[in-house]
Each structure stands twice: as structure tokens, then as C-alpha cells.
């Protein structure tokens, strides 16, 4: 078993509503997985169960060979799972640089011990902002940013935790074509550094160009998983998702 992430038959219900119904999913190290599905199909719930924001009721999530069930969200971040939020959630009272300082202080610091000096920290923040093209705005506040810049900050902050797996939850919704290309280029660059990425997205052109593999969720069930070009031709997927 070499998978980095191993989701084994997990379920989650809210009252009487079944949000996830026995989901299995494996992601190999370095893979670029696209996850699609209509609104309310359980994509975000799945992300929340992997990241520990929600706890799955049955089944199990293994990451990097360790069972993560019952771990709090911050503990999973410490083990190398990072995420961006669908609606950006920056720390409003902090500058951009300080936003990135948080995962460095609390995750990277915790992982490797107190290795970094104040200067190292500043340099890392700068590098990360440089990577997403926001270095000039290091001292600005999140409220000064545009939509696309906010998404980039969100990704940079997730990357600051130095994750093995990055889950990008609808990082491109509401952006223009050139902005989408911006974000895609960024994600591909991260992938080339060896980071495993799960991309959750509605914009099909972006998913198709990015993903090496595609999984489809409908009503809390996984109905397809395979090569993107095969999956989109799968009659069940066409009927349940693309056809609508």
C-alpha cells in the first residue's frame, strides 16, 4: 500500500440527511486528482472529514501510513494536510506577511522544532508571497486585496504549512479566464515540487487540464474514478452530473 491518502468507506450524516455514504478514495504521492460533483454532492463535507473540521461517523482516513480518525484539524495540519477554503478566510486583523507567519509558527515550527530565527521567518514569508506574486503587498491588510489576490493568499497560507497534500477547495470560482490560468499555473508549479494536490472545482476546462485522475461525487456517493477523459464519457456521470 503506497497511497499517501487512503479514505476507507467513510460516512457522515447531518440529522436525517446523508452527506457522505461510504466513500473510498486513494491518492498516490505526487498525484493531481480532480474532484467534481454537483452542488450539495458532498465534496466539501469530504474535504472537511479529511481535514478534521468534521469527524466522520464510520470508516477511516489514513494519511502517510497513520490513521487520522479522531484527530483535531490542527493535528492533521501538523501531519501534512493543508487546505484552502472555498470562501477565503484570511485573518482580517493581520498583514499578509503575518497571515503566512501563523502556519510557519504553529505548524512548521512544531514539526521541526525551534529552528528558525526571526529573520528566517521573515524570509520564508517573503518567499511565499513572492511565489504567488503578492510580495509587494506584504505589509497590506487582507481587506485591500482583490478576489484573485485573496485566493492566492489563501493558497500561499496553505503552502506555508509545508504540506504533503494540498486540498484546493474551489480556488477559482468567480474568477476571470486569465485569473483562472494564473491560479492553474501556480498549482502546476506546486505539483512539480512534488506536492500531492486534490483540486475541487466546478470549472470543467480547469479540472480537465489540471487533473491526472478524476473522481465524481453525486449525492454523497462516488460514482466514478479514473482517467479524466474516460470519466467524462462514463454514461452514469453524464446522466447524473454533466447531463443536468
Amino acid at each position: 500500500m503506497t497511497a499517501l491518502l487512503h479514505v476507507d468507506n467513510i460516512s457522515k450524516r447531518f440529522g436525517g440527511f446523508v452527506a457522505l455514504d461510504g466513500i473510498d478514495l486513494e491518492v498516490e504521492p505526487g498525484e493531481r486528482l480532480g474532484l467534481i460533483g454537483p452542488n450539495g454532492s458532498g465534496k466539501s463535507t469530504l474535504v472537511n472529514c479529511i481535514c478534521g473540521t468534521l469527524q466522520n461517523e464510520s470508516g477511516s482516513v489514513r494519511f502517510d501510513g497513520n490513521v487520522m480518525d479522531g484527530l483535531a484539524a490542527h493535528e492533521r495540519t501538523h501531519r501534512g494536510v493543508a487546505r484552502s477554503f472555498q470562501l477565503p478566510r484570511p485573518f482580517h486583523s493581520m498583514t499578509l506577511a503575518d497571515n503566512l507567519r501563523i502556519p510557519l509558527l504553529y505548524t512548521v515550527h512544531a514539526r521541526v522544532g525551534p529552528l528558525r530565527s526571526a529573520g528566517d521567518l521573515d524570509a520564508r514569508c517573503h518567499d511565499l508571497l513572492e511565489m504567488v506574486g503578492l510580495a509587494k503587498k506584504a505589509k497590506r491588510m487582507p481587506r485591500d486585496l482583490t478576489q484573485v489576490e485573496m485566493r492566492k493568499l489563501e493558497l500561499a497560507r496553505a503552502m506555508a504549512a509545508e504540506p504533503k497534500l494540498l486540498i484546493a477547495d474551489e480556488s477559482m470560482a468567480g474568477l476571470s479566464h486569465s485569473e483562472i490560468d494564473d491560479i492553474l499555473t501556480l498549482l502546476v508549479r506546486l505539483s512539480e515540487r512534488g506536492i500531492t494536490i486534490i483540486l475541487i472545482e466546478h470549472i470543467m476546462s480547469a479540472v480537465m487540464s489540471f487533473s491526472q485522475r478524476l473522481a465524481v461525487l453525486v449525492s454523497g456517493k462516488k460514482i466514478a474514478d479514473g482517467k479524466p477523459e474516460d470519466v467524462v464519457r462514463d454514461p452514469e456521470v453524464v446522466r447524473a452530473y454533466l447531463g443536468q
Binding site: G52, H74, A82, F91, S93, I102, P103, L105, Y106, A160
Partner: peptide, 23 residues
């Protein structure tokens, strides 16, 4: 570091957890 952590709680606890802050 504690003060930074406190501020993330004030701003957004969900995001704080995702950044590894034991809220």
C-alpha cells in the same frame, strides 16, 4: 507566538485550525 495564536482565534477559528493552531 501565543499572541499571534490568540489573534487568529479572534479573527477566524476555522482558518486558525487549518493553519495548525490548537485553538
Amino acid at each position: 507566538q501565543l499572541g499571534f495564536g490568540f489573534a487568529t482565534i479572534r479573527d477566524d477559528e476555522l482558518a486558525a485550525e487549518a493553519c495548525g493552531v490548537p485553538t
